[in-house]
Design a protein around this nucleic acid. Structure first.
Lengths: 99, 99
DNA sequence: GCATTACTTGGCGAAATTGCCAAATGATTG
DNA sequence: CAATCATTTGGCAATTTCGCCAAGTAATGC
């Protein structure tokens, strides 16, 4: 497996590995939203949210569409909710060697 | 959704968001291996590999079992290969707003 | 054109992650 | 019990990520 392919995978995973970004992903699972609506759901600065959205789009998780002065983002991959459910089913792993 | 549950999810995702750790996950998809065998597959220090393994176990991705002086790690969740295939199918997202 | 709304980009300090070395632990053998 | 093998832990510098502020761009209305 070439290193570049691994880096692409890692970039995609890193793009989810943040509470705000994960919250955005969940919010967008209900349907497309514009940046202001997404921002209203977070406790971060608007510019921070914009950067999170750019990162997630570049990783391939989100697609966006400009309508007038608004930019509407939506989930570009429907496997994400499935994956999150899988994650929730993981055991704790607190105790070594007897899970 | 409680903040603690989100942090658990983020921790699980972060535990995959590293080239060495992702490589370990793929290696272990073929079956359980002890730390030395895993180490031989990476270009990192043994202590570094050990820390990666601990992190992945705590996140719930790996389980381990001690046999003599060796510790055998294995994948604890079979949804991981499915998720990685999903990631590989993501588009690039390089161009904004016309994906 | 000028003002306003919607969003993005630049920059920089703060916080988190990473990785090597050295030291410690734990099991096995002589 | 001393020596060795397999693995983990502590510590710390280097790198990366994060998030706010300020400034910039782009579309709409007056």
């Amino acid at each position: 497996m070439p290193a570049a392919a691994i880096d692409t995978r890692v970039a995609a995973i890193k793009a989810l590995a943040h509470p705000t970004r994960l919250g955005i992903a969940e919010f967008l699972a209900d349907g497309p939203r514009c940046v202001s609506e997404i921002h209203a759901r977070t406790d971060a600065d608007l510019s921070t949210v914009s950067k999170h959205l750019t990162l997630m789009r570049q990783a391939g998780w989100l697609a966006c569409e400009k309508r007038g002065q608004q930019v509407h983002y939506r989930l570009a991959c429907d496997c994400l909710p499935t994956f999150l459910r899988c994650i929730d089913s993981l055991g704790c792993g607190d105790t070594p060697c007897d899970c």
